[in-house]
Design a protein around this nucleic acid. Structure first.
Lengths: 71, 71
DNA sequence: ACATGATGTAATATATACTTGATATTATAT
DNA sequence: ATATAATATCAAGTATATATTACATCATGT
């Protein structure tokens, strides 16, 4: 999995720390970090919560163009 | 979790069975059924694969408005 | 009536998302 | 120089997404 820089950028745009976003989303700081680092494949529910916390859509933060997926 | 009727409709629109979509997405038929029935909270990667198989976006198939906050 | 395809469920098993608690590093401020 | 905040990462535990196997129902066709 590749890093999610769109998420990192959206967070920066709102001046939120990983911890602040984690609290807003009701998950741990490590979980947000792991998603940004591309270590976790988050659930759609968590993605939706993160989108709402950052005022973005699923497509804006989580859409990926084909690429080498290796599921 | 509530049912995902948008997914069911998009599948019908393409005249695909749950099994056909499952095969296209590389998961079991029961997994597709569980997602449609709202029993599972799928991973974003699976959502992306399903979207590509059906020619839809994440927002079209998986966006949910706030959910029932139980006043 | 019978066969078949599509769907809805259920039970048990495994992989992995996510937690908690810790340490290390880097940047910024004092 | 030294605190402190933010990030990165690790290890061990819990919760749940997904697989597999199986069975029941409903529809459509023969």
């Amino acid at each position: 999995m590749s890093k999610n820089l769109k998420l990192k950028a959206a967070r920066a745009e709102r001046d939120m720390t990983q911890k602040a976003l984690a609290d807003a989303a009701g998950v741990s700081r490590q979980t947000i970090n792991a998603i940004e680092q591309g270590e976790y494949n988050p659930t759609i529910k968590l993605c939706l919560t993160i989108c709402r916390a950052l005022g973005k859509t699923l497509d804006e933060l989580f859409w990926e163009d084909e690429e080498d997926e290796t599921i």
